[in-house]
Simulated assay, not measured.
Amino acid sequence: MSHMDFAHPYFGAFVMFLLTFVAFTATTMLARFVSRKLSSLSHEKLKCTIYECGPEVTKQPNKISTQFYMLALLFILFDVEIIFMFPWAVNFQVLGWFGFVAMIFFLLLLTIGFVYEWRKGALEWHSIK
């Protein structure tokens, strides 16, 4: 017979994890059961209509260029990369040569990606005609 050590420092955390898992599972299953019992499964015409106020939506051509979204994604990408560089700059002396080489490699990959996007024309703004 195995010996359970209730005095282990992480035993309380383990019990809390188990209780949380059981409570989450029970709550999810109860909510699913109740929602299925209370929902109406009829497919009425009124139920399938548009519920926003105003006229019915008609299909309109997209007037926003996808180039805007591409430029925004590139901005976010390069912005996140700059955020990764900030802790390196703050702890430069602590990281030593390993940190320096790692950041040079990171900057090299960043530069390769930037040149690739530049040559592909992703940074050019094309007007809508």
Rank of each mutant, 00 (worst) to 15 (best):
L18F: 11
N62F: 07
A122V: 01
M85C: 13
P61M: 01
L38C: 07
H3F: 08
V101W: 15
W118F: 09
F24R: 03
V80R: 06
L18R: 01
H43L: 15
I64Y: 04
F75Y: 11
S35I: 04
P87A: 10
P61N: 12
I112L: 15
I64G: 00
R119E: 10
T66F: 03
L74D: 07
F86W: 13
T58H: 13
M1L: 13
H43W: 11
L107T: 02
F21W: 14
V57E: 10
P61F: 11
G113S: 15
L38F: 07
E56D: 13
V101A: 14
V90G: 02
T66Q: 03
I82F: 08
V57I: 10
G113E: 02
R36E: 15
E124K: 13
K45A: 13
H43P: 01
R119W: 14
F6M: 14
Q93V: 02
T66L: 06
Y116P: 01
K45P: 07
F106V: 01
K47P: 02
S65P: 03
F24E: 04
L71Y: 09
E52P: 02
H3Q: 12
P61D: 05
M4N: 04
F78V: 10
W97P: 03
L73F: 08
P55V: 06
S35C: 02
